[in-house]
Amino acid sequence: MYDFQYHKPATIADAVKLLAADPEARPVSGGMTLLPALKHRLNKPTSLIDLSGIAELRGVRREGDAIVIGGMTTHYEVATHPQILAAIPALARMAATIGDTQVRNRGTIGGSLANNDPAADYPAAALALRATIITDRRRIPADEFFLGMFTTALEADELVTGISFPIPEKAGYAKLRNPASRYSMTGVFVAKGPHGVGVGVNGAGPCAFRQAEMEAALSANWSVDAVANVKQSPDDLNSDIHGSAAYRANLVTVMAKRAVADAG
């Protein structure tokens, strides 16, 4: 790891100020992705802005017909929070499968969204549930947030402060793990929500995406059979030693079926 300055601001405003002052600064929340990258010297930030001291970024609350989760909420907290378990149990179940226990104890929802790893779990849920990502300066619909591999709509000094999930009627999630990294090879999150049916896919492509044909099929007929006949095109999907594009395309359908079954 290269050395860097370390800052631990107490407010969002101070954090943004530090980031704005130094284009080579990086925010760190749980650090579950950033620290391994730093250890391999893949990044050389001049300073790390630790967000763990910012009380405003914590907490889970219900706002009308939505659950709002603070950016620094850990995966373990999402998996076990009574309000999330009651309102969007599929989201809690999904959080309980992220990484391993130690990743869930430190990794955060805000960090995962901002990092936008193609194989991360949350982006599929955010897309399917039509979530809104809340930053220090605006609200960004999930559809406009995830732009590409490790790329989001965030500006360089912009912080994810929370995410608002409209409470769905039902939702479900299924994934197949990569046998080595244990990240999602392909995962599908399905939801029947106040703004319609959503099907979010992670792991398969360079960026999480919505599967429109499956959404249409499920809108017409919410059933396992409805998605079973929708084939995902392998074009533009990821291909590596663990999974070809054709294999991942198959998994989109298989995981969609299982996610619908999970949703009930």
């Binding site: 080595a180 990294s181 244990r182 030693i241």
Partner: peptide, 25 residues
């Protein structure tokens, strides 16, 4: 079932960490 060591044509080891070399859990 899961373990394999893969080199590419340039002789770079593709399975060069636990991220790509699957270990039994």
């Amino acid at each position: 079932l899961i373990e394999n060591t893969v080199y590419d044509g340039e002789g770079q080891l593709l399975t060069a960490s636990f991220n790509d070399y699957a270990m039994p859990r």
